[in-house]
Every structure is written in structure tokens, then in C-alpha cells.
């Protein structure tokens, strides 16, 4: 992937997270940070995915999103959720849900189940990435 492509991907992830942040009515002063968190997380995904496949890359990206959200949330005095929710949007496996639906519709149950399994694994990776970092930060607090 060239530098030009990466810049475009970064921008697209920035705008996607920002668009969702507005849809979820984020306070205006947090909009820029939420978009940035999503864009950096997506770069993390792109950096890891050629070496490890989608599931692990999604985990890394979700962890990056969570880490940034937790750190920024202290500095901005807001719950980390407000930054993490728009940040994970680029990682959501919408395409796989579609493909599994298409397979099932064609009667290819095996292909459909395969995509469902991948969807669940990726969703689990997002959850795991958020959970690991989130609980570590709650340890630190006490």
C-alpha cells in the first residue's frame, strides 16, 4: 500500500468515525478527538493485517482505540466510552454479515456459517481489545 493510499484510508476512517460520532451526538469539543481515535485505530489494523489476518489485526486495532480513548478521556475529563464507540466503527465487520447472508440465500450453508464464524471472531476481537485495555485502566484507578 502506497503512502497516498494510506493517507486516503486514514482520512476515510477519520470521516467515518466523525460521522458516527455526530450521529451518536457527541459533544462538539470531543468530535475531533473521537475521529482521530478511529483513524489511528484503523491505521493500526492496516499495519498488522498483512502479517496476521483479520482477527488478530482487529484485536490490535481495538486495543489501540481503547488505549487512546482511555488516555484522552482523562485529559478531556469525559467517559472513555464517548471516544471509544466512534473509534471502533471502522472495524465493524459489516461486509462479512452481508456475505454470510448472501451465502445462506444461495443455499450454501457451509459458506454462510464460515462467514458467520469469522464475523463472531472479529466481533469477539473488538470486544476483547476493548475489554483488556479497559479493565487494565480500571485497575490503575483503585
Amino acid at each position: 500500500m502506497t503512502f497516498y493510499d494510506l493517507t486516503l484510508q486514514f482520512l476515510a476512517a477519520f470521516l467515518a468515525s466523525g460521522g458516527f460520532a455526530v450521529l451518536y451526538k457527541i459533544p462538539l469539543n470531543l468530535l475531533y478527538y473521537a475521529s482521530l481515535v478511529g483513524a489511528v485505530g484503523w491505521l493500526g489494523y492496516l499495519a498488522v493485517v498483512p502479517f496476521s489476518g483479520a482477527v488478530f489485526a482487529t484485536f490490535v486495532a481495538a486495543a489501540v482505540v481503547s488505549l487512546l480513548a482511555e488516555e484522552l478521556s482523562r485529559f478531556l475529563k469525559t467517559p472513555a466510552t464517548t471516544l471509544a464507540v466512534p473509534g471502533i466503527i471502522p472495524l465493524v465487520p459489516g461486509m462479512r454479515v452481508y456475505r454470510s447472508m448472501e451465502y445462506f440465500l444461495q443455499g450454501d450453508n457451509l459458506g454462510g456459517l464460515n462467514e458467520v464464524a469469522m464475523t463472531l471472531l472479529i466481533a469477539g476481537a473488538i470486544a476483547f481489545g476493548l475489554a483488556v485495555i479497559g479493565s487494565m485502566f480500571r485497575l490503575k484507578k483503585r
Binding site: L8, A12, A13, F14, L15, A16, G18, G19, F20, A21, V22, L23, I89, P90, G94
Partner: peptide, 11 residues
Amino acid sequence: AVMVASVSFTF
């Protein structure tokens, strides 16, 4: 925002 989000996600 919805339109921007849809376009960026498709991209």
C-alpha cells in the same frame, strides 16, 4: 454526518 459516514465506510 450520516452521508459522510456512509461514503467513508464504503470507501
